[in-house]
Nucleic acid binder design. Structure first.
Ligand SMILES: [Zn+2]
Ligand SMILES: [Zn+2]
Ligand SMILES: [Zn+2]
Ligand SMILES: [Zn+2]
Lengths: 131, 131
DNA sequence: ATATAAATGTTATAGCATTACATGGCGAAC
DNA sequence: GTTCGCCATGTAATGCTATAACATTTATAT
């Protein structure tokens, strides 16, 4: 895990945009946020995002084509993370479950499948929006 | 679940392309396959795919932006399906695990979250490609 | 200082998905 | 049998997401 202060200028800018977003945000939306800071091309955002993902500071939500600040200060590179995504208010909950992790690892080991990255995303409605 | 014979012409064409693919295939690749059959626009493919997904005959792989024929003849609209995707040979294994399903449902119920659709995709290397 | 790796800037392009609108087919209601 | 409503289709245009390719600059190590 890399410290906040290790970030380059572009990485800090993108991280700041993720923090302000308080929810999932697309790379292009991040770019629009940061045009006033001098960013001009999508690649500048995508490159910064790649590093932030590597550092575990942000996550990519595959079903939204969007990115979100990691909800946990701790490291979880070896964890299997799940996201619950409210389709109404777009709020996201990040969690992990050891039993789920064990079962998925059991399946992969039985098949001699070597996992590199796992995506788990539950779309639905949160308590507030379902009421 | 809808029967094979209920399919419209475009839906049958797209299903045929999925069957011939024997693996994940993008909507645009399907379109290219079906140009000789008269299809011309992406929307024709996407509309057919939407129906096939609804019927449970095909699945969308979010991490690949691709689609694949359902591996199981039975219905599993209420199941939570997982996919193991080999990043080398692109082969895909479709499976489900009751314990995983229970744990995810337990989490959502505890949060009063009402799930509508769950995505689980494990990227990695299959037995053959990891050897 | 020099070599090496990492990050950046810029343009262009590739790939994926939907909006909008017009048309056609087919069964139910009348 | 005609009218209506529904579903599928056809077509063009557009929007959104992501990467390739290449040149340049900046940081790091020896
Ligand atoms: Zn996290
Ligand atoms: Zn909500
Ligand atoms: Zn299936
Ligand atoms: Zn393989």
């Amino acid at each position: 895990m890399t410290l906040h202060t290790d970030l380059t200028r572009n990485q800090s800018l993108v991280l700041g945009a993720l923090e302000r977003a308080e929810g999932p945000i697309s790379a292009y939306a991040i770019l629009d946020e940061l045009r006033t800071d001098g960013l001009r091309a999508p690649l500048q955002v995508y490159r910064a995002l790649d590093k932030l993902l590597d550092m575990g500071l942000a996550h990519r939500l595959e079903t939204l084509n969007a990115f979100i600040l990691c909800a946990h200060p701790h490291e979880h590179t070896s964890e299997i993370i799940a996201f619950a995504i409210c389709e109404t208010c777009r709020q996201v909950w990040e969690f992990s479950d050891d039993t789920v992790r064990e079962r998925l690892i059991a399946w992969t080991q039985a098949q001699d499948f070597r996992p590199s990255r796992t995506t788990m995303e539950i779309k639905g409605q949160c308590r507030k929006c379902a009421a």
